[in-house]
Amino acid sequence: MIETIDRLPKNRVYNYVSLQTKGVIKIVEVRRPGGPIRFKRWNPDKGENESGAKIENISGEMIWRIANAVAENEPFNFDRILGGSYNTRSVLEALMAHTPEFYYCYPGRIMDINDHVTVENGHKHLMWKPEEPHAYGEMHRVETDVAISEVPSMSVRYDTLEVPNSMVEGMTIEVARRHTQIQIALYLIGLQLGFRTWIAQNDKGIKYQDVPLIEHEGIVKSLDGENMVAPYEGAANAGLLIDCIWFKNGRFMPAVMEVEHTTGVKSGLMRMLNFSRKLPRFDDTRYVIVAPDDDRDKVIRYANEDSFRELDARYFAYSAVEELYAICQRRHLHGITQEFLDCYMEKVVND
């Protein structure tokens, strides 16, 4: 997707897909392989021009979220995928629509009210049709018989949390609380998937639902008793400060995870690297940086440094954590394989 957008001429302007959205777009730069895309936009009807327009970015994280939602010949809607986030989403939509394999369409919308079902005019969507490319730099509408029944968006609820003072050192209470919420989400996801969870030694003071986290079901109290860790000299000690480790049946360690913010990505990779070097190479273990969506580019950059490449680290965006957590809250998942996790944990190390 990045490559095809990069092939669009840079010496012209592009219109938005929606006629109601006034203004034009001009590409400044496309950074391969994962973005960002830099552009300018302005509205001539308001007397604006290119020279007065600022350069803005379409983040690599947003591009990745859209790319992972695209399926051949299936309509997709930017607002639904992104939850209304990102004020540059209409720009990416427009640029994609000007590439040969993407069309715009208006699938029907199923309305089911008081047992009365109708199909009404739907919202704007894009559709990927790789077998029917059109010319570069043009937008084409495609008719479709597809009708969409929209599922209500999911929200995430966090029960009462008490963050110990020791966690607040070096960060604001808001950041510490967010870090803890994500740890709790990872624990509860693991619990539903049948995993037992290790939480970092220095986070054991967390209280969840007014009960110390260490006393909750499925929490590993000591790494010294874990079959995947205990036999290897120095491994238990190296894992003490790892934010979250999942264990399964005493025979698998599906994920080793560090929950980090911008300043902690590199230190998180270092802790996981040190831990991994105390252990044999387990084929089914993923080393994962869990970080805010805006930190994706930083995670990719650090994970690809020579000193960390052996980890083959994954990226688990906060939004992906909460999407999976929301599903776990609404549904009792069972029969899930470990490979299911790969749908949410992005592989970021270049081959």
Rank of each mutant, 00 (worst) to 15 (best):
K54T: 11
E3P: 01
A147V: 14
Y14I: 05
V30Q: 03
F275I: 02
V299S: 00
V119Y: 12
L19T: 13
C105Y: 04
S90C: 10
V156D: 06
A236H: 02
K40H: 11
I55E: 11
H123G: 11
R31S: 12
R331C: 10
I148T: 05
C328G: 04
I219A: 04
D224W: 14
D312W: 06
I58M: 03
H134D: 08
Y136S: 05
W198Y: 05
P280G: 05
F252P: 00
A200S: 10
G225S: 06
Q181F: 05
R277G: 08
H123R: 12
N49T: 12
A320S: 14
S85M: 10
G250Y: 06
H216N: 02
M1P: 00
E323G: 08
G35S: 06
D45E: 14
I55H: 03
N43S: 15
Y232G: 00
K278F: 03
R309A: 11
D203N: 11
Y315W: 15
D210M: 12
V168L: 13
H134F: 11
Y158A: 07
T263R: 15
D45Y: 12
N237G: 05
I2H: 05
L95F: 04
A313S: 13
E233A: 13
F247M: 00
Q329F: 08
V299E: 00
V24Q: 14
Q209G: 08
V290D: 01
V265G: 00
L333V: 04
M171P: 01
E93G: 02
G190E: 03
Y325K: 02
Y287S: 02
K54C: 07
A176K: 04
I245E: 02
N49G: 13
Q201R: 15
Y302D: 00
L269Y: 04
N114S: 15
M1C: 05
A313V: 02
R281A: 10
I148W: 04
T21A: 08
I300Q: 03
G60R: 04
E72Q: 09
N121P: 02
L193Q: 04
Y232R: 00
M171W: 06
E29R: 14
M62Y: 08
L193A: 03
W42G: 01
D312V: 13
N15K: 13
D112Q: 07
D351P: 11
F340M: 03
G218A: 10
D243I: 00
M139D: 07
R65M: 10
K248G: 06
C343G: 13
E322P: 00
A67R: 13
H125S: 05
V321M: 00
P212E: 12
I81R: 07
Q20P: 01
Y104A: 03
E162R: 13
